[in-house]
Amino acid sequence: MTVKEPILELKDVHTYYGNIHALKGISCAIPSGDIACLIGANGAGKSTTLLTIFGVQRAKRGEILFKGYPIHHLRPEQVAAKGISQTPEGRQIFPRMTTLENLEMGAYLRNDKAEVADDMEWVFDLFPVLKDRTRQLGGTLSGGEQQMLAIGRALMSRPELLLLDEPSLGLAPKLVEKIFETILEINKMGVTIFLVEQNAHMALSISNSGYVMETGRIVLTDRAARLLENEKVKKAYLGE
């Protein structure tokens, strides 16, 4: 297999919440076009990693490169403009805006109206449920619909890299399968995906590569398929 150019690269990233050292030197490189997943227990620092990439939390030390360009000094809105989007933990959709408006906000930085409309159609193809809910307020959607809306909204900016934080959280197993199928589909359209998941089995089975995180450090890096076979991973995260 040829070594692909990394689209996102973290080099020894440290993040603090006040005096708490949340990320203790994260390094990883995500190849363009891949699905990479970050698994680990609660509080390991997975979400913090995503927030740090986006500049919501500031990295105190280290470098974050997007397509070779340093982004660790950028503010979230500037990171978004580079072509990264995120569905953060807890979906964070705008509760008092309609589904349509939520999606429009996803395309906030774009001015190509016609193509935005096309992309909206694409999102509705991916998640047909949303089409029936266009006029409904985001806060009144069900959990699964909100998750789809959050992913859809993130796609509306036509990102090159999509950061997904726990898309399966709180969803029925059937829905989880559907979401993961869609993630694969999105990836096939050429979007690189960095996935954070508790549902390690599901995440690893669709990913190319995987990272295992423990208390602020990445302790294991490998191809996803091999991580699925790894005894330690099996024991700790796959419940086998």
Binding site: V56, E77, A80, S85, F94, Y108, L109, R153
Partner: peptide
């Protein structure tokens, strides 16, 4: 309007609004 909607979005969830590229 787009700006008006961005205002509402910012009011509802500032961090998320920023992550979508809205200059709060």
């Amino acid at each position: 309007t787009k700006l008006g909607k961005a205002m509402r979005a910012t009011a509802q969830n500032q961090t998320m609004a920023r992550m979508l590229g809205i200059d709060i």
